[in-house]
Every structure is written in C-alpha cells, then in structure tokens.
Design a protein around this nucleic acid. Structure first.
Length: 706
RNA sequence: GGGCGGUUAGCUCAGUUGGUCAGAGCGUCUCGUUUACACCGAGAAUGUCGGGGGUUCGAGUCCCUCACCGCCCACCA
C-alpha cells in the first residue's frame, strides 16, 4: 500500500470524472451507424430470424418543423421498445419518416417567399411547387439529422417521405380503390371554409370556441300583395349572424306556435336585398328560443340548408372566398364579414327594426391554424364515405386485433367512430398530393391510379388531351393515413410488406387519435384487410413545470437540442421516460433534467470505477460470465439476487408498457443498491490485502456482471 | 349538453389484482471531502393519501356522493 497508495487508479485518465455527453454520444452513434446494427437486415444485425418481427413506423415529423420536445418524447418511447425488441433478438424494424404537412409547409414557405418579394400568386402553381421542393429538400435533411441527434436506432436506409413517389403511388391507388368501392365521391356540400387560408377544412380542423356573442332581434316586415313592406306589421327573428340576412330565403316558425299561426303562408321582405320570402312552418324551430321565429339561410348554415331542402327554398351564397360579401349582397358587396355585420346592425337600428340585442353564450368554429372564424359554405369537393370503414376499424378493436394503451382510449375511439361524418379530403392548396381525378368537357369524372393519369374519359371516351385534372389536393392526413403500409411498399406486394406488415406498435400522442390513428385504422382495414398495428400506445403531452402548454410565445419551451448539447441525449431521454405514463401528461423543467443528468453521470462514474479497478490478473477483453459461486460472499449474493429481482420487475413493467416504472426501477437499483451499497462493499474487498486474488476477481466480475 | 382524467410530504409525482404502500426526486436541516462521482455520501423532519358516506377482519387502493382543477367531444338560430 505504501508503495502504491492508489493501485487501481492508474487507468482513470481516459475517463474524466464529469461525463461529457455530447462528445461520447456522437462518437458512439457513429460507431453504431458504421456497424449497421439498426436495420433488421443490416450487416451488424443479430436478429434471430425464427422470432416474430417487431415493427414500428415512426410518426413522421413535419418537414418544416424544428425538433421539439414532443418529438423527443415520441422518438424515445419508440426507441425504448425498439431497442428492447432488438436485444431480445427479434428482427426489428424502426422505420423513420418525414411528413410533407401541406398547409403548415405552405404557411412557412409563404413567409419565406414574402421576404423575396414574391407571393403564391406571383409565382404561380408550378414555380411555387418548384420552390417548395427546393425548400423541403433542405429541411427534410435537417429534421432527419435532428432525429439522429436524439440517438434513436431507426433504419435510416428506409427513411420515407409522404411526398415521395412511393407515397404518391399509394395515394393514387388508395383513392382509386375507394372510388371504385363507392367510398370516394364528389359532391356539393356545406363544408368548413377558412377565409384566411382560403381552403376547406375537415371537421377536426375546426376548433369549437366558446364565445360571448350577441343575439340580435330583428323585425322583418310583412309585405302587401304588391310586395311592398307594411310599416306596422312585422315578425321578429333572432340571429347571431346579421350579415347572413343577405342570404335569407325564408323565415321559419314552429307549426304549433299559436303566436305565429297567422303568419305562416304570408311573406316578408328581407332588408337590404329587398327579397320577398315566405314564412314557413317547420318543427326544427324551438319555440322557446329567441323570438320563436328564425331566419333561414341555406347557403350558410347546416340546419338551414336541411330546412331549405325540405321546403324547396333557393340557396343564396352571399360570401366570397376571402370572407367578403359578394354581388348577392347588393350595396354591401365588397365589405368584409365583420364590416357588413356592423353596417347591417347600425342600419337596422336606424330604421327602428332592431328590437333588441342581448348577450348570448355561443360556440363558434375557428380555424385550427389561422384562428379565423370558419364559414360554412356550399362547395363541390371530394369526400370519403367513412361509415363502412369505421365499422371495420371498430371490429378490429372489438376482436382484439388492435388494442389501446391505456385502455380508456378505446371508449374515446368508439365514441368518435360511432358518430363519424364523411371526410372532406379536398384542400384548395398546392403543396400535397393532387387528387387523381380528371374531368372531360362534359364534366364526366375519371379517377386514375396511373402516374400519367387516364388515357381517355371513362364515360365518353374523349382523349386525355381534352381532360383537365382536379386542382385540389388531398388533406395531409390522407397520405398519413396510409403510412404503416405505404412505407413498406404497398400497393406493391414487396418483401418488406409481407414481412413487416401489420406493424407491432403505433406509438403516438393521444391528441391525434382522430386525425391520424383512426384514419390509419380505417384505411388499413379497408385497403389491406388487416389492422395496421397490434397496439396503439398513446403518450401524453409534455408540459412546463406549472402544467402549462409549452409554446414559443410563452417562452417556456424545453429545446431538446440545447438539452442534448448541454447534458446529452441520454439525460433528456431518461428524463422523458422517467416521467412518462401512458396517456398522462408530464411536466418537464430544469429540476427533472438535472436529476436525469446526474443519473447519467452516476452511471459514467460507476463504469469509471469498475474499469479502473480491474484486477491485474485479468487481462484482455474477453467477455466475462458469472463468477464462480464458491468465491462469492454475502454481498455478492445479495446484489445478484437484487439484480435478478430487478430484471423480473422490469420485464413485468415492460410487458405492461409502463416505461416510467421501468426507468424508476433501474434508477433505484443502480443508484441505491449497486452504487450506494455494493460498490462500497466491493471497495473493501478489492483493497484488502488479506483477500485472495480469486476473491478480488470474483468481486470484480460481480461488479461487471450486474 | 355528453364523456374522460386528476386531487398522496413545501414543489413535481409513483403507488395496476385491497393486507411491510404511506414512498421517490427536488427543496429544507445536520454531518462528511487525499475515497468512482459535490452532477457526491451519511442522517433528519414534514402527509386526517380532496370532503363525506359505504363494503370489508382490513381501503390512497373497491362502491356511492359532493367539491374543485384540467382535457376531449358536441350542427341548434
């Protein structure tokens, strides 16, 4: 001892006491890539081909988005499952991807070209899309690279993009199939229109927003036989949207309302547009609401449209695509919706036709992206009939072919599926998959899944040269809905599709069950005849330490890239996993990240201790097995027993998708048992001169083994 | 209007078949550093497990009810 007071510390120089994660991690990641261990069929794969494959298709992040904490969580949870399966010898495919995010990407590009003095219209469709491709080719690499910084073990050779040719082919083929099956149809319906983005939206993209509005009670004048308004004979209607008065084509009352029996059959004059419309009786009218009489505007309200159709009323659209009053609004044409409302209310008041205005609690629909008030408008669009597909998707869950983790989301899923409406898949945007429908001069529809479109009209046989393709593109979620199989080569029956489909786990956030999970299940069941995944694991949202939503404007975001730079991907990943429970939100802040970083440092130092105390008798790098049982002392028996139990508990937690519990078990076992107790006990043995070298060796081997 | 989740130590939370489950991390207090790690170690304090009722030999753990917080869904002017 005197000669060498620190006999075991002569190898520490290459492992500094404070772990420098950023350097070590990138080096190791490069080694993994070089060894080609991520792909199931890679050079370095040790997959046991006899075992069933384990497959996760990654939820593709938006091509234009920077990596945020939600991506870090989703990727980490996926990687945890993937690495475990791989270590257990399953042929394991973790297929990464990027989503083209049509409306979000256009939003970003519009801002960029604005700085170049251009607009969407000044460029035109073709040049705009060229510009978009140039842009996304850059950002696509950025987002994929950021994913790699997280350390996920995805098969980068199979990286897919929802706008690549494989995806395009799948989209065309899927749509043709749905069309041939009678599930895709073109029709004129009242759809959700966002005047800001100037496109239609699906019901899901409309956010119901509670608002205190106003209920205006407006007097409409009855007319005489000549159609002239009678100054003293009026009927009062209640409306929250006076600007739609311009499109009124009737006033409705309840057939059994004694107040209005005399009014039914008479006519009233619609102000501003001087249109004479009938007073009709219909039992949709609720007598106790407002004045008991309601204006009917079929072009701008779902209920009114139905009423109008029952009574054969005309449909008068009074709005333009950008939310102004159109030529049907007489003098008010050209005004914005808001300005028109103000003018109308003021004018009515001036005329003495505004009976009263009372505050009214109501719910208005706003655009998920732009926050504009969504306008119900009558438009011709493409729809997908969802009922038959929803029934199949529900059957998959009932039959246990797909299960939700946590199970309570099963009910959420069923509630939505049971009340599902047809899906408007048309978007009046440019960036995305253009709907593969062609129209001949007679407006015959031909849907084609060929790359170059149809050769001739399917109805009248006119040549393709006389046909024009649909201008609209698909809702982004249409191509995303094909993701679990389009990425594997579908509709071609590729070896990948045969081997890796259906996939094992779809891991994603509970916030996109309807947007995405439900669509994948419907399309997967219908198009491939199989449920696209066995398990849907839903993670929660990552919130700030006070439970608030993380947002750039609030400045409370945890930027995964800076955490990785400062503390390492492992620290970030461990913090996220440690705090995660299926379906539950978690709060993340500096405290939890510090704790996680400390744990990683603890691991580093334990390894540093172990490598530095390697007994001189052991040389070379041969893999070590369990030490000879005869040489073990009580401490060794204890820690080996604890390790075995921890493994059991971890296995159980894994099988129940309790990843947070797994992290906690490992944390406690490593820190409180291995480091705090066994390592300290081992020091005594290793440094005691009275101990035999065999004992020292066994002790050290125990350290390594555990 | 319907549905779901939450309410456990000062803070954030774990506690999934009812019986060493009253716990962890952070924070606080005391002590400790030629020791793998101060991004550390040893030790300490703090809880009527939201309120009330019930089932049971026994309940954070099951049932009923109330309160508050949060989320999702919803075409009624």
């Amino acid at each position: 001892m005197a000669a060498d007071p620190k006999p075991h510390n002569d190898q520490t120089s290459d492992m500094p006491p404070v772990y420098r994660a950023a350097e070590v991690e990138s080096e190791i990641y490069e080694q993994w890539l070089a060894a080609d261990v991520f792909a199931p069929d890679g050079r370095g794969s040790r997959a046991d081909e006899a075992k069933p494959p384990f497959v996760i298709t990654q939820p593709p992040p938006n091509v234009t988005g920077a990596l945020h904490i939600g991506h870090a969580l989703t990727s980490t949870v996926e990687d945890v499952m993937v690495r475990r399966a791989r270590m257990q010898g399953h042929p394991t495919l973790f297929l990464p991807g990027v989503d083209h995010a049509s409306i979000a990407a256009q939003f970003v590009l519009d801002q960029i070209i604005a700085t170049e003095g251009e607009t969407r219209d000044s460029l035109g469709r073709e040049r705009y899309l060229e510009r978009m491709w140039k842009f996304v080719k850059e950002t696509r690499d950025v987002i994929a690279d950021q994913q790699r910084r997280l350390g996920i073990s995805a098969d980068w050779g199979r990286l897919r993009f929802t706008m690549d040719e494989g995806s395009a082919q799948a989209v065309r083929f899927a749509f043709k199939r749905l069309y041939d099956d009678g599930l895709a149809y073109r029709g004129e319906k009242l759809i959700n229109w966002c005047p800001g983005d100037q496109t239609s939206l699906s019901d899901l993209e409309v956010i119901a927003t509670p608002t205190t509005g106003t209920l205006w009670h407006v007097r409409y004048h009855f007319v005489d036989d000549e159609g002239r308004p009678l100054p003293d004979e009026t009927i009062t209607v209640a409306t929250t949207r006076p600007e739609t008065i311009l499109g009124d084509t009737a006033v409705a009352v309840h057939p059994e309302d004694p107040r209005y029996t005399a009014a039914v059959g008479r006519s009233v004059l619609i102000p501003f547009v001087d249109r004479v419309v009938p007073v009709i009786a219909d039992d949709v009218v609720q007598r106790e609401f407002g004045s008991g009489a309601v204006k009917i505007t079929p072009a701008h309200d779902q209920e009114d449209l139905a009423t109008g159709q029952r009574h054969g009323l005309p449909i008068i659209d009074v709005m333009t695509d950008d939310g102004r009053i159109n030529e049907n609004g007489a003098d008010l044409a050209g005004l914005t919706r808001e300005a028109a409302r103000e003018r109308i209310v003021a004018e009515l008041e001036a005329r003495g036709d505004l009976e009263k205005a009372v505050p009214h609690e109501m719910v208005i629909g706003r655009c998920q992206r732009s926050d504009d008030v969504v306008e119900p408008r009558l438009k011709t669009q493409w729809f997908v009939k969802t009922r038959p597909m929803a029934d199949k998707a529900m059957a998959a869950v009932r039959e246990g072919r797909t299960e939700f983790v946590p199970p309570r989301f099963t009910k959420v899923f069923f509630d939505w599926m049971e009340n599902i409406h047809d899906w408007n898949v048309s978007r009046q945007l440019w960036w995305g998959h253009r709907i593969p429908a062609w129209y001949c001069p007679d407006d015959h529809v031909t849907v084609s899944d060929a790359v170059d479109g149809p050769e001739s009209c399917a109805v009248c046989g006119r040549p393709a040269s006389e046909m024009r393709q649909e201008e609209d593109i698909f809702d982004t979620w249409f191509s995303s809905g094909l993701w679990p199989f389009s990425t594997l080569g579908w509709p071609e029956v590729t070896p990948d599709l045969e081997r890796y489909y259906p996939t094992s786990v779809m891991e994603t956030g509970y916030d996109i069950i309807f947007f995405w999970v439900a669509r994948m299940m419907m399309l997967g069941e219908w198009l491939t005849g199989e449920a696209p995944f066995r398990t849907v694991y839903l993670h929660g949202m990552v919130r700030d330490p006070y439970g608030g939503k993380m947002s750039k404007t609030k400045g409370n975001v945890v930027d995964p890239l800076s955490v990785i730079y400062e503390s390492g991907a492992d620290a970030l990943r461990f913090a996220l996993i440690h705090g995660s429970a299926a379906g539950s939100d978690q709060r993340l802040g500096a405290t939890r990240l510090d704790g996680s970083r400390n744990f990683v440092n603890k691991l580093w130092n334990a390894a540093r201790f172990v490598t530095s105390t390697r007994p001189a008798e052991l040389s070379g790098s041969e893999p070590l097995g369990l030490p000879d049982a005869a040489l073990l002392g009580p401490a060794e028996h204890w820690i080996l027993d604890r390790a075995a139990r921890t493994i059991e508990e971890v296995d159980r937690a894994y099988s129940e998708f309790q990843f947070g519990e797994v992290a906690r078990l490992l944390y406690d076992a490593i820190w409180s048992e291995y480091c705090d107790w066994y390592l300290e006990l081992a020091k005594v043995t290793l440094s005691a001169e009275s101990e035999s070298s065999q004992r020292k060796q066994a002790t050290w081997e125990t350290l390594v083994w555990v």
